[in-house]
Design a protein around this nucleic acid. Structure first.
Length: 613
RNA sequence: GCCGACGUAGCUCAACGGUAGAGCAAUCGCUUCGUAAGCGAUAGGUUAUCGGUUCAAAUCCGAUCGUCGGCUCCA
């Protein structure tokens, strides 16, 4: 892939703002005005965004009381909660949060009604004379929009609206954390002190939310990565650089083989390109200009300047243009597990999902425009095969179109191809207007994991720009030169990121076909060790990943140890099993134990693995 | 990069100006055990690094490195 977003997408869940709905706000006001029956029904409990937005006001009220010097700025509802940014010399401490929480509880208990009124721009500016942020906001409100002030108790805020009727509606809330945040998200602006909170209709919802956070924490791939000895990031080596330990590398190998198999079946040709190439290549491709700040710095050797490869496409293009291509050769599909290095600011590095070096399951297709649809269909099909195998059954497609003003004739061709590819496979999709890359439309593939979080994995992008920059061509049936279209595609995205998501999806309990250790064999006492060794040898002979535990521990200890390692099968061999020539199967997630012959077990596990379970 | 919190044994944590300690893991014994922690012993640390304050620093101060939570939500 050639552009930054496909490889490091943010989880779709997370920090998305929830817009306020002015039309649904101020029910009490309307109710008072009209006094009709309908308003009794309308007097339902507030929506979560309304509730949370109100909680943000309550927080600001509490801050005004306890820290009068702090200037409130903005405080919207967000997914799962709300935040409010304040301008204040010193940051809020955890103790401050506790005090604020207590004050907020009083404000909630007092059940202040939320009252709003429309004011003129000048009135608003005067009302917040000491607060340049609010003044700036008041100045920026478009003329067409009403300017409104909302009051609870002794606290009035400039606000568009969209609240609960009164503060008493907030039945369950909690302040979560403090963070620095730039005014309007721009690092050139002053840094504000942000307080994050969460708010819910009742205690049970809040508790459920906190439980979800705990569940997510228990699945955190950074924690599991260490506990299960899958990978590490080494301080001595530098941030954002991943060391795959043997157990992680087993899983990576399985992922790679799976992808490789699909690529081979669909006519991709594997290629391999260098990690360090002349900077000149990235001048031609435009990466230096457009992507330079995400590239590692120049490397000088014998007067020549080299760069670490941030993307694989220029390399694949060089292979394409290494000889004359005929229309009969197209489409040409080059694939590579291409390792790329990108500079990410230290503060944004995160486990396996945001790194500085990673390997993409990358491929570039060179084709004629009329071949686009077919190639898209193939790609989407392959993506489904991949997601399915790795347990992501809930997929979502997003077609990102270029903004209307930038759209060109070729974009229409490409979009049309993407739509037809999806529609002919009966795949529903969302459209993101204006979300396309600057060089063309793209299709993003998202999945939901086991606890409902959404992640963007694959992307397929159409590119008319790079072929032009490199002057790519093929000889058509008319003996004239024509320009091919390129498709960039990565389905898993980056293997590091994919692995991280996979760890969280399975909570580290990988199905047998992926598990680094599929079977542990252990005897009850040392007397049966010889038999356990024999069983181990037979399982290894069958091609399974087996570990023999001959340690001098009680069975309960060994079971506990391997259970915490989330091994799918523990085979216990005691006196009885030696006599019968069987093994006792302790299967992860299955309460009953069974005694079966070694042959039966081999057969069973073989089938399980073949079924990719 | 910026704001904040935090870096003590492999891991989880204690000691919060006065001799660095526990549990787990590891190693070695004893135990030979039937499905999530047997018993004992041993070893393990320039308290992230560098500098400062002090009679004395893991502890206070500063810098550096690293980790973690945030930093496109717009009244």
């Amino acid at each position: 892939m050639c552009h930054p977003d496909p490889c490091h997408p943010e989880p779709v869940e997370g920090r998305h703002g929830v817009p306020c709905h002015p039309e649904r706000s101020d029910r009490r006001e309307r109710s008072r005005r009209t006094g009709s029956m309908a308003d009794v029904i309308d007097d339902r409990r507030p929506s979560l965004p309304e509730l949370r937005h109100t909680a943000a006001h309550v927080l600001a009220y509490a801050v005004q009381d306890l820290f009068p010097e702090a200037k409130p700025t903005i405080g919207p509802a967000i997914e799962n909660g709300f935040y409010y940014d304040f301008d204040r010399e010193s940051p809020f401490t955890p103790e401050d949060l506790e005090r604020l929480e207590r004050r907020m509880a009083e404000i909630v208990k007092a059940d202040y009604p939320m009252t709003g009124r429309v004011v003129t721009r000048q009135e608003a500016i005067d009302a917040f004379a000491g607060n340049p942020y609010k003044v700036e906001l008041a100045r920026d409100i478009p003329d067409a929009e009403p300017i409104t002030l909302y009051t609870i108790g002794e606290f009035t805020d400039l606000c568009r609206g969209g609240h609960a009727d009164s503060t008493g509606a907030i039945r369950a809330f909690k302040l979560m954390s403090v963070a620095g945040a730039y005014w309007r998200g721009d690092e050139h602006n002053p840094m504000l002190q942000r307080i994050y909170g969460t708010a819910w209709h009742d205690r049970a919802e809040l508790d459920a939310h906190l439980a979800r956070l705990e569940e997510a924490q228990a699945r955190d791939h950074r924690k599991l990565g260490a506990e299960l000895d899958l990978f590490s990031i080494e301080e001595q080596a530098g941030g954002g650089l991943v060391f795959w330990h043997p157990k992680g590398a087993v899983i990576r190998g399985i992922i790679e083989n799976f992808i490789r198999e699909g690529l081979r079946e669909r006519g991709y040709q594997p290629v391999v390109t260098p990690h360090v190439v002349s900077e000149r290549l990235y001048e031609i491709s435009g990466h230096l200009e457009n992507f330079g700040e995400n590239m590692f710095g120049p490397i000088e050797v014998e007067g020549q300047t080299f760069r670490l490869k941030p993307m694989n496409c220029p390399g694949h293009i060089l292979i394409y243009e290494s000889k004359l291509r005929s229309y009969r050769d197209l489409p040409i599909r080059y694939s590579e597990f291409g390792t790329v290095y990108r500079f990410e600011r230290s503060g944004v590095l995160h486990g396996l999902t945001r790194v500085r070096g990673f390997t993409q399951d990358d491929a570039h297709l060179f084709c004629m425009p009329e071949q686009l649809q077919h190639e898209f269909e193939q790609t989407v099909e392959e993506a489904r095969r991949l997601m399915d195998a790795f347990g992501f059954t809930d997929m979502q497609y997003v077609l990102s179109r270029r903004a209307e003003k930038d759209r060109t004739e070729t974009d229409e061709i490409a979009e049309d191809a993407i739509r037809k590819a999806l529609e002919s496979n009966n795949l529903p999709y969302d459209v993101d207007e204006g979300g396309g890359a600057f060089y063309g439309p793209k299709l993003d593939i998202n999945v939901h994991d086991a606890i409902g979080r959404s992640w963007q994995l694959g992307t397929v992008q159409v590119d008319f720009v790079l072929p032009a920059r490199f002057g790519l061509k093929y000889r058509g049936s008319d003996s004239q030169d024509h320009r091919p279209v390129m498709i960039h595609r990565a389905l898993a995205g980056s293997l590091e990121r994919f692995f991280g998501i996979l760890i969280e999806h399975y909570g580290g309990a990988f199905p047998a076909w992926l598990a680094p250790i599929q079977v542990v064999v252990t005897a009850i006492s040392q007397d049966q060790n010889a038999y356990a060794r024999e069983v181990t040898a037979r399982l290894e002979g069958a091609g399974f990943r087996v570990t023999l535990d001959e340690s001098n521990e009680k069975l309960g200890y060994k079971i506990r140890h391997w259970k915490t390692q989330k091994v799918p099968y523990i085979l216990v061999t005691g006196k009885q099993e030696v006599v019968d020539g069987t093994v006792n199967v302790n299967q992860r997630g299955v309460d009953e134990k069974r005694n079966i012959s070694v042959e039966s077990f081999v057969e069973e596990l073989r089938k399980t693995i073949e079924a990719k379970q």
